[in-house]
Design a binder for these strands. Structure first.
Length: 306
DNA sequence: CGCATTTGACCAGC
DNA sequence: GCTGGTCAAATGCG
C-alpha cells in the first residue's frame, strides 16, 4: 500500500504515530517472548500484564494521534481499508458474470462455470488450537479437500454474510494432530460485513480449562483473569466424521457477530502458559496496510461496502 | 421451505 | 500437470 500523503501540518502527528507503533512493536516482541519462552517470565508473571498494558497504551495513543489528524478523513480511511477488498472482489467475480455484460456471448453453464481467482496477498492470521471454539463470526463451510502431505482434510469457510454484504473474510481449518486434537486455523481477509453484535472473545489454545488465562479486551483495556471458557461460548458439537469434527457450531448459527474487527473480535486471549505455537499479533502487525486505528477502536465500518 | 453442509468439478497458480 | 482454493448442485436438517 502506498503511504498516504500527509500534509506538513500532520507530519508531526505521523512521526508520533510511527514512534508509538515502534514502541508497540517492541512491546509485542516482548509479549511474543513471554508466550514462547514463559520460563523467562516465571519469576515475574506480572510483567506480562505490564507488557499488555504498554501495548494497549500504544494503541490508544496511536488512535488518538491519527484520529486528530486532518489528513485522513473517514472516506479516505475507508478507501485505504477496502481498496484491496474491492479489487479482489471484482477479480473474484465469476467469469460468466463479466461475460454476461456482453450481450452477444452466451456461455453454457457447464462449459465455463466461473473464474476462480485466488487471493494473492491479503490479510492473514494463523493460530494453532486444540479447541474448536466459536470465534464470534458466522462462517459457512464451502469446501473440504484432501491436502498433500496432510493426514487430514482441510475445511474451507467463508463469512455467512458474503452474499449479503460482500464480506470476503475466509478461513481454513486444518487438523494437524489427532491426539491430542490440534487444529491450524488460518484467517484470510478482514470482515467487511456489518453486524451490530460484538464478537465474543477468542480463546487461543488453552487445552487445559484449568489454566488461568488473560483476556485482553481491546475496547475496555481491561485485563480479565479467567478460569474457564467465556460463558458466551456455545458448547461445541462434536460431530466426528473421519476423525474431523464438523465445525457447524463453530461457524456459528448462534448469535455470532460479523463486525469488522480482526477475526479474534475485540478480545484476545493470551494463555499464560502456552503449550502450542501461536501466531497472533505479529502476524497481522506485519501487514501494515491493515493496521487501522478504526479497526481497534471498534468503530463501525459496516457501510464501507454496500 | 430456507439454510447449511457435502462433494465432485472447475480453475488459477506454480 | 499437480495442487489447492472455490463453485454450485445435491442433499440433509430443523
Amino acid at each position: 500500500m502506498e503511504s498516504p500523503t500527509w500534509p506538513e501540518s500532520s507530519q508531526s502527528n505521523r512521526i508520533k504515530a510511527i514512534q508509538e507503533l515502534t514502541h508497540g512493536q517492541e512491546w509485542t516482541n516482548k509479549l511474543q517472548e513471554a508466550l514462547w519462552c514463559p520460563e523467562n517470565f516465571e519469576s515475574d508473571p506480572t510483567s506480562i500484564d505490564g507488557v499488555l498494558v504498554q501495548i494497549l497504551e500504544m494503541f490508544e495513543k496511536t488512535i488518538s494521534i491519527v484520529g486528530t489528524s486532518s489528513s485522513i478523513n473517514n472516506a479516505t480511511f475507508d478507501q485505504l481499508l477496502t481498496s484491496d477488498l474491492h479489487s479482489s472482489a471484482s477479480l473474484g467475480k465469476p467469469k460468466s458474470e463479466n461475460i454476461n455484460e456482453t450481450p452477444n456471448s452466451v456461455i453454457p453453464v457447464k462449459i465455463k462455470k466461473r473464474c476462480v481467482k485466488r487471493r494473492k496477498s491479503s490479510w492473514t492470521s494463523t493460530k494453532v488450537t486444540s479447541d474448536l471454539i466459536d470465534d464470534g463470526h458466522a462462517w459457512r463451510k464451502y469446501g473440504q479437500k484432501e491436502i498433500l502431505n496432510a493426514n487430514h482434510q482441510r475445511s474451507y469457510y467463508r463469512c455467512t454474510y458474503k452474499s449479503d454484504q460482500g464480506c470476503l473474510a475466509t478461513k481454513q481449518v486444518q487438523m494437524i494432530e489427532d491426539k491430542p486434537p490440534k487444529y491450524r486455523i488460518t484467517y484470510f481477509g478482514n470482515h467487511t460485513c456489518n453486524n451490530l453484535q460484538r464478537a465474543p472473545p477468542i480463546i487461543l489454545d488453552s487445552p487445559d480449562p484449568r489454566d488461568e488465562s488473560i483476556i485482553l479486551n481491546f475496547e475496555t483495556k481491561e485485563l480479565i483473569k479467567k478460569k474457564h471458557l467465556h460463558p458466551n461460548f456455545p458448547s461445541i458439537k462434536q460431530e466426528l466424521k473421519d476423525g474431523f469434527p464438523s465445525l457447524s457450531s463453530l461457524g456459528g448459527n448462534q448469535s455470532s457477530s460479523c463486525n469488522n474487527d480482526p477475526p479474534w473480535g475485540s478480545f484476545t486471549h493470551v494463555p499464560q502458559v502456552p503449550t502450542e505455537s501461536v501466531s497472533l499479533m505479529s502476524s497481522w502487525l506485519d501487514h501494515e496496510e491493515m493496521v487501522s486505528p478504526r479497526a481497534y477502536s471498534g468503530l463501525d465500518r459496516g457501510d464501507i461496502i454496500s
